[in-house]
Amino acid sequence: MKSFEYTITDPVGIHARPAGLLVKEIKSLAGSAVTISKGEKKVNALKLMALMQMGIKQGETVKIEVEGGDEEAVAKKIEAFFKANL
């Protein structure tokens, strides 16, 4: 398993647009299970609504975990995605 942490800088947090883009991105990286957690709460990153319902706001830190597939490369791609979009 590969994981990293990221602090959200988008003023609205993980809102519909980036959440949608993220789901799209992860779907394209078949073979890896990706989860996003904030504190105790953890969701499958493919679950768009559940992800939005975490209500992740600007300034909050989330943990992203990648399991299976080319973990290293996938984690890197997702990290780049967060930096560019969130």
Binding site: G20, L21, L46
Partner: peptide, 19 residues
């Protein structure tokens, strides 16, 4: 594109796993 994204998000919501 920004406005279009809303409906693309809706498309994904239609397929949301929990839903």
């Amino acid at each position: 594109d920004e406005a279009a994204m809303l409906f693309e998000t809706h498309q994904m919501m239609c397929e949301d796993l929990d839903y």
